[in-house]
Structures are given as C-alpha cells and as structure tokens.
Lab assay of single mutants.
Amino acid sequence: SASLEDVKTAVLGLLVILQTKLYTLPASHATRVYEMLVSHIQLHYKHSYTLPIASSIRLQAFDFLLLLRADSLHRLGLPNKDGVVRFSPYCVCDYMEPERGSEKKTSGPLSPPTGPPGPAPAGPAVRLGSVPYSLLFRVLLQCLKQESDWKVLKLVLGRLPESLRYKVLIFTSPCSVDQLCSALCSMLSGPKTLERLRGAPEGF
C-alpha cells in the first residue's frame, strides 16, 4: 500500500504534465506521457489490482482522460474550469503507423480551432504528436469488463456518452463501437458483474 501511494503521486504528476505538454513542443512528450498513463491502467486490469488506493488511481486517471476532446481538424483539447475547450495546435487524435513515428509534419500553421486557440506554431513546419484515442478506448473496454470498484465504473459510464459525442475521437483511430456495445450488453446481462463490484448501489 505504501508503494502504491508513491505510484499514485507519480500518476497525478503525469496527469499534470500531460495537461501542460498537450499545448507545448515537442509534441512527442505529450504522446509519451499519454502512453505511460494508459499502459499503467492496463496493468491494473492485467494484474487485478483491487486495493482501494489502486481504485483511486484509476478513478483520477479516467476522470482526466475522459475529458479529452477533439475538433473537426482532429486536434485534441481539454475543457477549462468554465467548460470551454482549448484545442492544441500540436497534438492530434489520429492513429499513425509505428514506422512513421509518433509525430508527423505539417507544412505550416493550422487553421484556427473551433475553441480558444493555443499558442501559434513558431516555425514554418510543426511536428504534430499522435495521441490516438484507441489506446484509451481499449482500456475503457477492459474497465467495462473487469472493473471491481463501483465508483470507477460509475465515472466511466457517466463520462462515456459525452466523449462519444466527439465522433472524430472514435473514427480517426481503430476504435470498435461494436466491441463497446458488446461490453456494455455483457456488463448488464452477465451474472458476474454484481459479484465483482464493490460498493454498487442496492438494486443495481
């Protein structure tokens, strides 16, 4: 439990870093931090981490990651405290083949985003970082199938509809809506759902 406290501190630090690096160059920093966060949550489900502190780590990670939004130009952003989304000039939600690297070039400044813009690109060529939603999407499927803490599952179920409104997140990387529907149906009809959940409301 003591070591998990250190892990929790590290994860919180990564969330803060991602919130900053999403809007700064090099964009590969945001890509790497995002991948680290998603990989860490995957390990929770792989090794069945069920301690309360592990659940709190997942809760905080999902609470942040499910706020990711994308505009029509595929640029990622996060809402501010007033709910207004600021889109990044440097990070996009497109999935890119590994051989192309985590970044790609664009020939010049991008068109203005639909929300308040981030800082304008400084040079004639900007390297865009790929932060594909499919990585998070796979972890969300694991959550629906394996999550043991009701608070975490409730958060994910509550945030998913709003995330799905931003269709560009889903359609720019390999996210299977069929698998999502299947996971939701299995969660509702499967007898093991109630068996594994802690803290579920009576009558769920």
Rank of each mutant, 00 (worst) to 15 (best):
A183E: 14
V11L: 05
V7P: 01
I17K: 01
R138E: 15
E99P: 15
V131H: 03
Q142G: 07
L144V: 09
Y49P: 02
S173W: 02
A30G: 05
Y133H: 06
L144G: 01
L110Y: 13
E147Y: 00
Y34C: 03
A125N: 14
F204L: 14
L37R: 02
L67K: 14
T106C: 14
T114A: 15
K21T: 04
S102M: 14
G101K: 09
A54V: 02
D6F: 04
L164V: 04
R159I: 05
C181K: 01
G190I: 08
I170E: 03
T31K: 11
D178G: 11
R138A: 10
L157Q: 00
K145W: 14
L153C: 02
L37H: 00
V33K: 00
Q146E: 14
V92W: 05
C181H: 04
S130Q: 10
L197V: 09
L140D: 00
L188T: 07
A54F: 03
L184I: 08
L76R: 02
P89E: 08
R198D: 08
L22Q: 02
R196W: 04
S55Q: 08
K167G: 04
T9R: 07
I57F: 01
E35Q: 12
D178P: 07
T50V: 10
L78M: 09
S39D: 14
E99A: 14
T193A: 13
E5K: 06
P116V: 14
V156M: 02
C181E: 04
R165C: 07
F137G: 03
S173Y: 03
C175P: 03
G13C: 00
S3G: 14
D94K: 07
L4E: 03
Y166N: 13
L51V: 06
S163D: 01
D94L: 04
V156H: 00
P89M: 06
G101A: 14
K104T: 15
F171A: 12
S88G: 04
F87N: 04
G158A: 12
L153P: 00
V7M: 03
F204T: 06
A70K: 02
P174Y: 06
S3T: 13
T9G: 06
P174C: 06
E162V: 14
L155D: 04
V168G: 07
L73Q: 11
I53F: 05
K8D: 04
L76I: 15
Q146I: 09
S72E: 14
K192V: 14
G158F: 09
P174M: 05
L68H: 03
L76Q: 03
L25M: 11
R198G: 09
R58A: 00
T114W: 14
H74N: 05
R58I: 00
H40Y: 02
T114K: 14
S111R: 10
E195A: 12
I53W: 02
Y90T: 10
P174T: 06
V85N: 07
K46G: 07
K105W: 12
K104N: 11
S55C: 09
L110D: 12
P89W: 04
E99L: 09
T114E: 15
K105P: 13
T9A: 10
S1L: 07
F171I: 12
A70S: 07
H44I: 00
F137T: 04
E103Y: 12
L76T: 06
S163H: 07
G203K: 09
V131A: 09
E99H: 13
T9Y: 06
V16T: 14
S189E: 13
P132Q: 07
V152H: 02
L67A: 15
P117D: 05
L18T: 02
Y45D: 00
K192A: 15
E147Q: 00
Y95T: 08
